[in-house]
């Protein structure tokens, strides 16, 4: 811009002219060569700016967390161990700008399916979850299955959808596991018992030592769920527990 300002200086306005150093001004492309009238372009520009702000606000809002003030003394239990604070703790400082933008654009983002965080493989790649089920029919026959399962779910995209079902149980809470068990009990007609398992991953050293990625010791059952077809009082089994981090 500063270069352009010098170039556009009117002749004889202060600095002595140096014709040998003055380069011809860069021709401006006239905006009039563009389609649509300026009012329409102005209106479209407003819509574009709002849309991009909305697209930006969605992941900004979803990826920011409230923070405790510096020096905040964490509550401790009887043994002096620090305890996590609740999500509605009054000391938590909310990121007010992304939250406000998120609220403002919420319905627009929902309508266009744009309300996403885009946290691909973040914050860290983690072990996947697997659901094993067993449905016992009234005649005693048993249907066993697993999802995701490459042998049963093909093509790869269908397998991946089943993988997401098992994976997003963590996001949706224990009721989702009950939903799956109810569906399987209805589908096969019987009593369904389901296990929710996490498949832990191996370090490079463990792989180099010859441990297979699907070694039985890498699977850990986190919860079980049961469902009986026709029973309106199906209750969840064990409550899911926190998923252990790191490798075993």
């Amino acid at each position: 811009m500063s270069k352009k300002r010098h170039e556009n200086q009117p002749p004889g306005s202060g600095e002595p002219s140096k014709p040998d150093k003055i380069r011809p001004a860069k021709p401006k492309r006239p905006a009039s060569g563009l389609p649509w009238n300026p009012a329409l372009r102005g209106f479209l520009s407003l819509l574009i700016a709002l849309h991009l702000l909305a697209v930006f606000a969605a992941p900004w809002n979803l990826s920011t967390n409230p923070a405790l003030p510096p020096g905040f003394m964490m509550p401790v239990d009887a043994n002096g161990r620090p305890q996590p604070v609740s999500r509605d703790h009054p000391a938590l400082q909310q990121p007010v700008v992304p939250r406000a933008l998120g609220r403002f654009f919420n319905h627009y983002l929902n309508l266009a399916y744009l309300n996403h965080g885009y946290q691909f493989f973040a914050p860290d790649p983690a072990g996947t979850h697997i659901i094993d089920f067993q449905v016992t029919k009234p005649d005693g026959t048993v249907v066993k299955g697993r999802f995701p399962d490459l042998k049963e779910q093909w093509p790869r995209l269908l397998y991946h959808r089943h993988m997401m079902l098992a994976e997003q149980t963590e996001l949706m809470g224990s009721d989702s596991g009950q939903q799956y068990a109810d569906h399987l009990a209805r589908l096969h007609g019987g009593h369904c018992r389901m296990e929710w398992t996490v498949h832990l991953m191996l370090s490079p050293e463990e792989v180099k030592a010859g441990t297979a990625l699907d070694d039985p010791k890498t699977y850990r059952v986190l919860a079980t769920v049961e469902s009986q077809v026709g029973n309106p009082n199906n209750a969840a089994g064990e409550m899911p527990i926190a998923i252990p981090g790191g490798t075993q």
Binding site: Y118, D124, P125, T128
Partner: peptide
């Protein structure tokens, strides 16, 4: 915008910071 927030989210990950995240992606059996 997708890439920016995808990158920012990864910055919070210890394995992305340590440079080992690729391993945990390829070592995922499923």
């Amino acid at each position: 915008i997708i890439y920016l927030f995808s990158g920012l989210a990864k910055l919070l990950g210890e394995n992305w910071q340590a440079g080992t995240a690729l391993w945990w992606a390829v070592a995922n059996f499923e």
